[in-house]
Write a protein that binds this DNA or RNA. Sequence first.
DNA 1: TATGGTACGTA
DNA 2: CGTACGTACCATAT
Length: 897
Amino acid sequence: MPETRPRLLLLDGHSLAYRAFFALPVDNFSTATGQNTNAVYGFTSMLVNVLRDEQPTHVAVAFDVSRQTFRLAEYSEYKAKRNKTPTEFSSQLPLIERVLTAFSIPFLKAEGYEADDIIATLVTQALADQTADMEVLILTGDRDSLQLVTERSTVLYPMRGVSDLARMTPTAVEEKYGVPPHRYPELAAIVGETSDNLPGVPGVGPGFAAKWISTYDGLDNVIAHADEITGKKGEALREHLGDVIRNRRLNALVTDLDLAMRPSEMALQPWNREAALELFDELEFRGELKTRTIETLAGEEPMEEGGFELEGRILGGGEITAFLEGLGDQVAGLHVRGSWAAGSGAVDGVGLATADGQAGYVDLAGLTPDDESALAAWLADTTRPKILHDAKGPELALAAHGWRLAGVVSDTALTAYLAQPDQRSYDLADLTLRYLRRELKGEGDTDQGALFDDGADVASTAMLYARAVVDLSTALEGELDRAGGSQLLTEVELPLVHLLASMEETGIAVDLDHLTSLEQHFGDEVRNAAEEAFAVIGKEINLGSPKQLQVVLFDELGMPKTKRTKTGYTTDADALQGLYVKTEHPFLLHLLRHRDVSRLRQTIEGLLKTVQPDGRIHTTFNQMIAATGRLSSTEPNLQNIPVRTEEGRRIREAFVVGKSVDGIGFECLMTADYSQIEMRIMAHLSEDKLLIEAFKSGQDFHSITASRVFDVAPDDVTTEMRAKIKAMNYGLAYGLSAFGLSQQLGIEPGEARGLMDEYFETFGGIRDYLGGVVEEARRTGFTETIMGRRRYLPDLTSDNRMRREMAERMALNAPIQGSAADLIKVAMLHTQRAIEEQGLRSRMLLQVHDELVFEVAQGEREALEAVVRERMGGAADLAVPLDVSVGTGASWHEAAH
DNA sequence: TATGGTACGTA
DNA sequence: CGTACGTACCATAT
């Protein structure tokens, strides 16, 4: 370790907080309980940044006590012009002190003096101690402190807002003001200081003041030679000499206060992580500042005794049984080394660890038959509690080895997702750093660790990961519990992991012949469309290039300009349709045709690439992507297979019932979907009488709502009326605007506005509900689904209109989309449970948000349909019935209804 | 070779 | 100027 020079960081708490208070918008920074936090936030943010960037060894913060200072006693007008400190500000000072206490940073006050004086005293003491050889940094928004700048002490002065700091060294001060630091107060005395209500010499700015000070070598000589200065400015100086002398007396900082602490006692101490994070929760500081704080202060924490040593070892042949028995019913963290994708995987080894420090690593190579069976039994034992990080992949890998995984009582990735559903990823190392202030170095790292990897490193890394999972789950579950999300974890998301794994493992059969012939067909269509398009314009271009298209459409063919995009004018399908209506140019038709068929071909090619040797496609369901709680599907995405057009639906013909396995034959596919699930949830949440009645009537929903809005008999609802209300019904849950509605229906914005008014007049409960959702979310900072799934929307209080309105639409949508997601997840679990209880061999294959796809075992069609109707229909007890429609057929297309 | 923008498929 | 996703391609920067 190189000897580091001690570095003392002193902050002027009052001036920094005051700056933050005016730099940050109040309405963006306040808690659900109405406590303003902009000053605390800004101060904390600056503090953390400077701790991170400057790496001080000693820190302290100085505060003003009150306005009763010796300066006021001497000059009754001191700071008199300053507005009365707003309570919104002063109420935050105790919070800042709590932050400092949690960070273990001392703060000082001195009756009758200002923070500046405390800092001046400490700087003087620090610099006087020759043996300590201390370097001093002063973070303050008060320019008076510039007089403290020396070769060994630097002022960091916030430039704009709270982000940029100017580094005021002696050279910097001289460059900016034209005088050396110790003469700065002399300059200030001449110029005056408005914020302190210290008037200077009128008409004299810093330039002239600096010139005088250097010409006469100091303020004393300027005063002595005041008679020699000519002109208006000289006259003004002579008239205001008294003010100047008074100013100089008042802006001199006191350097000999009797303080409770000396600089040497201010060595940085370990922070109180728990208290700090709890306080952050209370202040509703999330995300970036929290992460930055943890990353910055983690290094200051004491290493636990013995660091993070695990009593771990590589378990040799014959040792595994005893080791597993030794774990007893303790919760074990598991880290599976291996790979997984497309519903399968492979295991290389398994790291295990418990909270008491026991750990072991099992290398799959070289297991004795006894080891194998002991491990298999332990893994499958529901009474042996286990925690994993993102268990689905490991479960697939273990399954591929023939091992069943059961008794998973928690999953750290899922817990983190439920606690903060808007994160992009839930990487174990990131979470460990954030929540446990521990650096997890691992196999994936590109430092020496990976290059010189040997068996021991792999094993110890795996054990370390396993241990991290155990510790992390404690921290995360605390956070989730405080947010009321524990039930959602244990009763929905956690059990769903196993079901999703089995759906991925099963996959869905495809008709390769059909798929390849479709690819052929659409390939021909693409070529035809392209040829015809080229024939019209007399040359060949890349029809997939928006840039080349723009040249042809707007320059060469001179068509009217469409809506602007960042890079030019849009050529999307809507715009091309619009252009065709105006120009009837045949090129547009061929272009649109080309778009359609190339997309279909591309979809098919994507699917073909993912067909596994078993003739099935095994998608991956991601449970931790969508902030609303929905699943997503990748490689390939089976949740966006075309269905709207006739040609698109031909792709669905390629998803078929599979061949028999293990002697069990399958007779067909079955699809079961909820109808109008989101509107039903809205009816439930809003308790709108009329809407609930509409659903209970069981009639065509869009027609019945249209008949209400237009006040006509259900039989007199025209197709036009129905179409308009259908668009409204669908748009409502997305935060549709009158403009958006007019756009979609091709009607005047005024008419759309009237339609919406009429709709909300009819369904007042909906209007009240939607307004209430946003209002409450703005107050609490989050929305909530029927099952308590939260989504945090800090932008609801943004002063950026775009961001705020975006957040408002998210707030409208999240409870509805999210509740629907809760509901179908419960339905999946209940359906699967019933399938198992009744010993059915049929299998759940896919989930497409409001639809489930099953493979029906021979002879089980009726039984499965009954199960599905009962379990999906009964997934929740809402104010309206849950309507489920079911269809069967040899392909996904035929099973649609 | 990675990234952003555009476009478009689903609920 | 309607939410939530994933994928593909082009164009641009590296």
